[in-house]
């Protein structure tokens, strides 16, 4: 299995999402409060994972703009849960071996009311082994 495929499988496994369930209606993007900040939109997360383009997803601004509010998860008529995909992609990035996690002293400057809690928690995880 190629690396990209591997990553896509990992995201699917972590999130429990089956991208094939998506009917491409766009209700997730219609509902997303962070839509305008995102370079890859919620409905696109799904097709990116489906097409195995994880690198673009991992490098996208959206990873850090998603509020984890799960409005998309709530509204999606096909029960796809696109928000969980971005969660999983974020986890993969912050947990990559050799990458530095977040140091406590870095927090105050990042902290504002819009940063999702979940992001901070996962960013703390160090994976230097």
């Amino acid at each position: 299995m190629s690396h990209a495929n591997n990553q896509a499988e990992k995201i699917k496994a972590i999130s429990g999402v089956n991208p094939l369930k998506c009917m491409k209606c766009g209700k997730c993007s219609a509902t997303c409060p962070a839509f305008n900040e995102m370079d890859i939109k919620p409905h696109q997360f799904v097709s990116y994972v489906q097409n195995g383009d994880i690198e673009a997803l991992a490098n996208s601004k959206s990873l850090w703009k998603c509020l984890s509010c799960f409005a998309c998860v709530e509204r999606c008529p096909r029960d796809v849960q696109p928000g969980r995909l971005i969660d999983a992609a974020r986890q993969i990035v912050v947990r990559t071996k050799g990458q530095t996690g977040l140091a406590p002293e870095e927090i105050p400057e990042l902290l504002d009311s819009e940063v999702p809690q979940q992001l901070l928690v996962s960013a703390f995880r160090r994976y230097r082994r």
């Binding site: 209606c25 766009g26 993007s29 219609a30 509902t31 839509f35 409905h43 696109q44």
Partner: peptide
């Protein structure tokens, strides 16, 4: 009304 325009990739 808050909706998607998928062809323009916009939120309307």
């Amino acid at each position: 009304v808050q909706g998607s325009d998928l062809l323009d990739n916009k939120q309307i």
